[in-house]
Amino acid sequence: MFLRFVFPPPPSLLVTAMSVVSFASMANAGLSELKGKHMEYSKFWELKSGRKYKVDSRTGMIVCYTPAFLAGVASFALFPDESFRFLLLTSALSIHFFKRIFEVLFVHKYSGGMALDAAIVISLSYFISTATMIYAQHLSRDFPEPLMDLKYPGMALFLVGILGNLYHHCQLSKLRSKGEREYKIPKGGLFNLVVCPHYLFEILGFIGFSFISQTVYAFALATGTALYLMGRSYSTRRWYVSKFENFPNNVKALIPYIL
Rank of each mutant, 00 (worst) to 15 (best):
P9T: 05
P9E: 10
P10N: 12
P10V: 13
S12L: 09
S12E: 08
L14F: 13
L14Y: 11
V15P: 07
T16Q: 14
A17Y: 08
A17S: 14
A17W: 06
S19D: 09
V21K: 03
V21E: 03
S22A: 02
S22R: 00
F23Y: 02
A24D: 09
S25P: 01
S25D: 04
S25R: 06
M26W: 05
A27D: 05
A27I: 12
N28S: 15
G30R: 01
G30L: 00
L31H: 13
L31I: 15
S32P: 05
S32Y: 11
L34P: 00
L34H: 04
G36E: 11
K37Y: 04
K37S: 04
H38L: 01
H38G: 01
H38Y: 03
E40T: 08
E40V: 04
E40H: 11
E40C: 08
F44L: 09
F44R: 12
L47A: 12
K48S: 08
S49I: 01
S49N: 06
K52V: 09
K52G: 11
Y53T: 12
Y53V: 13
K54A: 07
S57V: 09
S57E: 14
R58I: 02
T59I: 13
G60I: 05
M61T: 05
I62T: 12
C64G: 06
Y65E: 05
P67W: 09
P67Q: 03
P67N: 06
P67L: 06
A68H: 06
F69A: 00
A71V: 12
G72S: 07
G72C: 10
A74M: 11
F76D: 04
A77L: 15
L78P: 11
L78Q: 14
P80W: 13
D81W: 04
D81E: 07
D81K: 07
E82M: 04
E82N: 06
F84E: 14
F86P: 06
L88H: 10
L88Q: 15
S91M: 15
S91I: 10
A92L: 12
S94P: 08
I95Q: 10
F98N: 10
R100N: 01
I101K: 04
I101G: 04
F102V: 00
F102W: 02
E103G: 00
E103S: 02
E103V: 00
V104R: 02
L105H: 08
L105A: 11
H108K: 00
H108Q: 01
K109R: 05
S111K: 10
S111V: 09
G113D: 07
G113T: 02
G113A: 01
M114D: 00
A115D: 14
A115P: 08
A118G: 01
I120L: 09
I122C: 08
